[in-house]
């Protein structure tokens, strides 16, 4: 709840640079609530509009459970490492 605005702002800043791929490392994120998931859904939608790839790295079990319960897990590309995320 408290981190979502800062993440949204950071993502908006990166989007303005129009990279080909946005990689978000979540390996240090042990907990995510619905506002965090909503922020990532927004980022996914922005990346799709900008024809960018959006990849989540190192999703922890708790965070994955939150994605699963909202039935959004299949919407996102999730990989284990940054190296995996940079591969096509």
């Amino acid at each position: 709840m408290s981190c979502a605005p800062a993440i949204r702002k950071a993502v908006a800043g990166v989007m303005r640079e129009r990279p080909g791929r946005l990689i978000m490392d979540l390996s240090a994120v042990s907990y995510m609530d619905s506002s965090g998931i909503a922020t990532l859904v927004e980022a996914l939608q922005q990346s799709m509009r900008n024809k960018m790839k959006f990849v989540l790295v190192g999703v922890t079990p708790q965070v994955r459970s939150a994605f699963e319960i909202t039935k959004l897990v299949s919407m996102f590309t999730m990989v284990a490492t940054i190296d995996d995320a940079t591969k096509d």
Partner: peptide
């Protein structure tokens, strides 16, 4: 409605599902 992929309204869904 989870078929409508957009942010918002997820909290109540999480509570009901959990």
């Amino acid at each position: 409605d989870l078929a409508d992929v957009r942010p918002g309204g997820l909290g109540v869904h999480i509570i009901k599902e959990t």
